[in-house]
Simulated scan of single mutants.
Amino acid sequence: MGGGTVGAETEEQPHGAAVVADGFGLRGPRGWAFRKVSFRAEPGALVAIEGPSGSGRTCLLLALTGRMKAKEGHAEVGDLPLPRKMAAVRRISALGQVPGVSELDPAFTVAEHLRERALLQRRFDGSVRALLRRPAERAATARARIDEAVAAAGLDLDALPKGERTSVRDLERLEALRLSIALALIGRPRLLAVDDTDLKLSDADRAEAWALLRSLAASGTTVLAVCSEAPEDALRITTLEGGTAADTAPETPADTAKTDTAKTGLTKADPAETDPAKTDPAGTGAEDGTAEDTTAAVGETAADDTTDATTEEGAADALAETGRA
Rank of each mutant, 00 (worst) to 15 (best):
G3R: 11
G4D: 14
T10K: 09
H15N: 08
A17G: 04
V20Q: 07
V20L: 13
R27N: 08
R35V: 04
R35S: 06
A45E: 05
A45R: 00
V47I: 05
A48R: 01
P52S: 08
G54D: 08
T58A: 00
L62G: 00
A63N: 02
A63D: 11
G66W: 09
K71P: 05
K71D: 14
G73D: 09
V77Q: 05
L80P: 12
M86P: 04
M86K: 01
V89S: 02
I92S: 04
S93I: 13
A94C: 02
P99C: 07
G100M: 03
P106W: 01
A107V: 05
A111I: 09
E116G: 06
R122W: 13
R123K: 14
F124P: 02
D125F: 14
R133L: 15
P135W: 08
A140D: 15
D147Y: 05
A149C: 07
V150S: 03
A151S: 13
A153I: 03
P161Y: 08
G163F: 12
S167M: 08
L174S: 08
L174Y: 02
S180G: 10
I181Y: 08
L192Q: 02
T197M: 10
S202T: 15
A207M: 06
S215K: 07
A218Y: 02
A225Q: 06
A225Y: 03
S228A: 13
E229A: 10
D233G: 02
L235K: 01
T239E: 09
G242K: 05
G242V: 01
T244W: 12
A245K: 00
A246S: 14
A246I: 10
A249E: 11
E251D: 12
E251S: 14
P253V: 09
T256D: 08
T259P: 00
T261Q: 11
P271C: 11
P271G: 03
A272Y: 11
T274L: 08
D275A: 13
K278F: 14
D280C: 07
A282H: 12
T284W: 01
A297C: 05
T301P: 14
T306H: 10
T310W: 01
E313M: 04
E313Q: 12
D317T: 07
D317E: 11
